[in-house]
Simulated assay, not measured.
Amino acid sequence: MTYSLDIDPDAQDQIRALPPVALDALAEAFEVLSLVPERGRPLNPDNPDGGLFQLTFGDGRGLITYLLLTFQDRVDVLVVTWVSFEHPPGI
């Protein structure tokens, strides 16, 4: 079974701002989410069945926060974060 991914508009903006190095890793993470979204860890460990999860990607530099809707076979990607160790020009 595969899960459909629904990307929140704010997450789409975050994805557009990612550096090229993050995009391949994100694509791999999305593949994991579509096949085994339970691989992520619960956002609240005290409520593991709450539906909100986080999955790291890109050697731990990226983090996806998502809602797992098992009965709808759907994963709603809410937030995509990337930590860059490179300074932008001028900093």
Rank of each mutant, 00 (worst) to 15 (best):
L33D: 09
A22I: 10
P42I: 05
L5Y: 01
S4T: 15
L35S: 14
V83Y: 10
N44M: 07
Q54N: 13
S34A: 10
G51M: 04
G60P: 02
P88T: 03
D46P: 07
T70K: 13
F57L: 06
L68R: 13
I15F: 00
L43E: 06
E38G: 10
L68D: 03
P45C: 01
R39A: 15
I64S: 04
G51H: 04
Y3R: 03
S4K: 15
L23R: 15
P88Y: 06
E28L: 08
T65W: 06
D46R: 11
L23H: 11
P20H: 13
Y66M: 00
N47G: 07
L35M: 11
I91C: 14
L52K: 12
E86L: 08
D59L: 01
L55P: 08
S84Y: 00
R39S: 12
Q54Y: 12
L23A: 13
N44P: 07
L33Q: 07
F53T: 08
L55N: 02
V75P: 01
T65C: 10
A11H: 05
F53W: 12
Q54K: 12
V21W: 06
V80Q: 03
D46G: 08
L43M: 07
T81K: 09
L52F: 11
W82M: 00
G62C: 11
P19R: 11
S4A: 15
F71Q: 12
P19Q: 11
S34R: 15
G51K: 04
L55K: 01
A11E: 07
G40A: 12
F57M: 02
F30H: 12
V36D: 11
E38D: 14
Y3L: 02
P45D: 01
N47F: 15
G40M: 06
R16S: 15
L35H: 10
T65F: 04
F30A: 12
D73C: 12
Q12T: 14
L67W: 03
N47K: 13
P19H: 13
F57S: 02
L43S: 03
F71G: 07
N44H: 10
F30T: 01
D8P: 00
P45A: 05
V75Q: 05
D6V: 15
D10G: 08
G50Q: 09
F85Q: 14
L5K: 02
P19E: 13
L52C: 07
R41H: 08
Q12W: 03
A22S: 05
D49V: 07
G50L: 00
R74S: 06
G60Q: 04
G50V: 00
